[in-house]
Write a protein that binds this DNA or RNA. Sequence first.
DNA 1: TGTGAAAACTCGGGGTC
DNA 2: GACCCCGAGTTTTCACA
Lengths: 157, 157
Amino acid sequence: MRLDRVDERIIAILGADARTSFAEIGGRVGLSPSAVKRRLDRLVESGAVRGFTVVVEPKAVGWTTEAFIELYCRARTSPSEIRQGLEGYAEVTSACTVTGDADAVVQVRARDTQHLEQVIERIGAEPFVVRTKSTLVLSRLVDRPVLAGASEVSGNG
Amino acid sequence: MRLDRVDERIIAILGADARTSFAEIGGRVGLSPSAVKRRLDRLVESGAVRGFTVVVEPKAVGWTTEAFIELYCRARTSPSEIRQGLEGYAEVTSACTVTGDADAVVQVRARDTQHLEQVIERIGAEPFVVRTKSTLVLSRLVDRPVLAGASEVSGNG
DNA sequence: TGTGAAAACTCGGGGTC
DNA sequence: GACCCCGAGTTTTCACA
């Protein structure tokens, strides 16, 4: 779907606070509340906006450990096979196939290093995994769940 | 802050859909709407819940390229120096210091490979950066912005 | 924590440009 | 095709018990 400037501004506003009311958004982008709603409905309908969620501070919820796990897979392992193998793990926050030595990079969050170790072992035991290489996150510097303001700067390229 | 089971369930429900009404949540966790609101207010107040946001499908917004950039920094570069250098980039979605060969891992999203190349060049030119090593994301397999259902399974470890 | 009432918001229909 | 206005129904909010 094609987004215009107003759509992008609506997304940027909701990215900062998804509970902003239609009236408030309308006031900022120069549209009536119902026009904003119609646009948002279309954005959700078309899949540009996948949904609405809370941003949790994992430390505050007791999940203090974070890591990247690089996966080296068996020859001819398909991406969908990897996805199916990983989506059952609640600890996996993100996974993707990549260029370079490894076949995939998995990001996990765990309560502590002991919990992380268990997760690495379990993932390493998946049938399509040959070996893993883990990198522990020391401290998080930047964390922008949504492209905060990305649409604002999308003209600079 | 200390979360009890009900708080965790409220977060899990909002993680799946942040627009779920207090009445709906209350019905599921066995609380009145106002009790749910009071708990959520406390969670936001305490910082356990950082905010509410939309989940955007970056492809649909025209950002089709994603990469990991490993940073090798000058000796004695502090994490806060890296953070300050990176937080100005709208393309940076996440950054953290890590164990292993590299000092930090930066995740970026760009419109296309050309745009990505520019970002890599600009980051590589930061004074604290000695060299970078980039890994392009081929296909995204799992993407859970919040620990979807993490609290539901937090007992198994 | 629950109750209840006032205020704010959402949502859909009808009409206009 | 996209917008605005407006009314009915729902949700949020807040004082009080």
